[in-house]
């Protein structure tokens, strides 16, 4: 099976450690992963901002770049959701989009396809998980990330109050409605504080940009990490100490 890795633009530029962790993790579990170098963007930013025409052009390009893969894995839940939810609609107008292979978010791939819950990770910290609203299937009740985290040695998983709630990022929303977006994340930081976690992780760097951005401004004592970084950490190769 040819597995392609798709790295979202936010991850590629701001959080390359997420992509490296994803790659290390998949390779450690014995999967061979391709990184088609023509890849740029799935079109999500354009799509959610209302620029559908531009999004469709990028979708057609995405489909073409990954057409040689049987399956695509990405550490971005919202990009996976974009391909799964919007592309079929685009494909009715542009058949080129229909060539896009199946795209799975990392934890989905691990649990559903690779059938692995214990990935052999070691991460001796107290961790909470922020569900990603835009995960391909509803995050409320999505147990996959939690199952993976529970199997990590040394990790103490603590519950996040009001578990299903959004972090307030929402792409363009974070700019167009900056005040509301900040009001939402302010309450989220309170929840994270209440959980007692020292690390908050999520399945999407977009959520983490929001949470870590607010934490950083407030000099909060919590690290924000992508779940791939947690799962990639082992006794031999711990996660970078700095976080984000």
């Amino acid at each position: 099976m040819r597995i392609g890795l798709f790295v979202a633009c936010v991850t590629d530029s701001l959080f390359p450690a997420t992509a490296r962790a994803t790659l290390h993790l998949l390779e450690r579990l014995g999967h061979q992963v391709l990184f088609p170098q023509g890849q740029t963007c799935c079109g999500q930013v354009h799509h959610t901002s209302g620029y559908r025409r531009e999004a469709m052009t990028l979708a057609a390009r995405f489909a073409d770049v990954f057409s040689g893969c049987d399956l695509v894995v990405t550490p971005s839940a919202s990009c996976a959701a974009m391909v799964r939810r919007a592309y079929p609609r685009f494909a009715t107008r542009d058949p080129a989009v229909a060539r896009a292979p199946r795209v799975l978010e990392l934890t989905e791939f691990l649990v559903d396809v690779a059938d692995t819950v214990d990935v052999g990770a070691y991460f001796p910290y107290r961790v909470t998980y922020q569900p990603t609203c835009q995960a391909p299937r509803s995050p409320r009740g999505d147990e996959r990330p939690l199952r993976l985290l529970r199997a990590v040695r040394g990790l103490e998983l603590v519950e996040l109050p009001r578990a299903g709630e959004c972090c307030g990022f929402g792409g363009a929303f974070a700019w167009k409605n900056a005040d509301t977006s900040v009001a939402i994340v302010a309450d989220r930081l309170r929840d994270i504080g209440q959980s007692g976690a020292e690390v908050v992780c999520a399945s999407d760097d977009a959520c983490l940009t929001q949470i870590s951005g607010a934490l950083s401004r407030l000099r909060g004592a919590v690290r924000a990490l992508h779940i791939a970084e947690v799962l990639a950490a082992t006794e031999a190769g711990p996660a970078p100490a700095g976080g984000r």
């Binding site: 609203c133 299903g164 709630e165 959004c166 929402g170 363009a172 409605n177 977006s181 939402i184």
Partner: peptide
């Protein structure tokens, strides 16, 4: 645009 599209 007054939505994070969280889907709740």
């Amino acid at each position: 645009f007054a939505s994070t599209l969280c889907g709740a």
